[in-house]
Nucleic acid binder design. Structure first.
Lengths: 123, 123, 123, 123
DNA sequence: GTGGTCTAGACCACT
DNA sequence: GTGGTCTAGACCACG
């Protein structure tokens, strides 16, 4: 499990763990039925509290990415890609909305916005 | 002062006040040398603690948007639009970066991203 | 009366007025028995509150630089230069003490201090 | 943590805490990565409000002397000695400027000033 | 009247 | 247990 913790980031550690594992699942680096490391093992590896890892695993489970079998650990579920794509689309739309509002405030033109997006897409 | 407080938001109240006043300044709804309402008056109006308003005013002052004269109150300074535009540009770039990464993950194409941006810009 | 008010300074206005009049007296630009402008007149001229000027005049009186005759106004007293020189000497010593402590903390050498003083004296 | 609070001083308590911790850091009595006492612990020890200590810690963080990790506490960062030395130099120059002006006013000679500095340096 | 500081205690999020 | 936020009310300095 290649997970990188940034202690000084504003993002809570449990969320960093959650979103990185989520990406591995969507990305299919972690496949259906794969076994996640135990809470304690991962906590040890990342040098964070076991409670923090537990919180991330709980989030993954409530979001439907994994399932936990008592005494055996957590297993990756088959992700519903279409559902996830819809969710991400809505999230992106909301984020674009915020960006457009911010841009208007300081009179960044539509063309400038397009070119900023273009530059990032071409990286 | 048209300021809207969302008590149940995750964003701290003082930051809501700060960013809304900041927008009024950038937007020139509040102009250079305008007098902000007193800490107590605004606290009363928004039904929050005076300390909370003060924290917002302190932020505005350290960020260079206002100046405070003891015993007289806070006054709006002339904002450096170019500096602000640069900051917003960087912020937008960072946000676009996140969006692009999310899009790639669920295989949203570049064309789809452009059209999402277009739709929002045309609203 | 050439008094300059800096509204955005950290120093209270009444103290700015006080110390500038004090200087005029020590400097002998204001001589013994000279009549200070009335509180109201000076307040009007400087565009500050009469209470603020009154506070400065009160300070001048308690420090022994002026005397006030009810119904007639404030008059400059003959300053006791030796006493003032002693006070200023003590004040300067205390300030030098603080400077030397600060310098030691960041390892500014004695020679550097001497040369800094020299440069300022030669201006 | 040897911190001394002077309740009757004009200097705010939070600033007394701030500047004393700052000195401990510059002085290397507190080293890089050292863990500061928790806000509540120090508040308890100094018999002041937790908010007052927090304000001092916030100042230390915005000035770049420490970093804070939510749920874990505040840690000392490696100070940039050159930057600090420059700041202190400017501060000292400004203070010397004031001293020189005061000295001129009461006709304290340059030689007297040098000897006052010399005496303090030799203490 | 204004801002500046401080308190004592509360609730929440993170580890 | 740690920091982050918020409250309601107090006292002081400045204008």
């Amino acid at each position: 499990m290649q997970i990188i913790i940034n202690n000084s980031s504003m993002i809570p550690i449990y969320e960093q763990i959650y979103s990185q594992i989520k990406m591995l699942i969507i990305n299919e680096k972690l496949k259906s039925n794969d076994h996640l490391p135990s809470v304690r093992a991962l906590a040890n590896e990342l040098k964070v509290s076991a409670l923090t890892v537990k919180k991330a695993y709980d989030l993954l489970e409530t979001e439907g990415y994994t399932t936990t079998i008592h005494g055996k650990g957590s297993y990756v579920l088959k992700p519903n890609i279409n559902l996830i794509k819809d969710e991400v689309s809505k999230d992106i739309e909301a984020r674009l909305q915020i960006i457009v509002e911010k841009a208007k405030l300081v009179k960044i033109s539509n063309e400038e916005l397009y070119s900023m997006l273009k530059i990032i897409l071409e990286d």
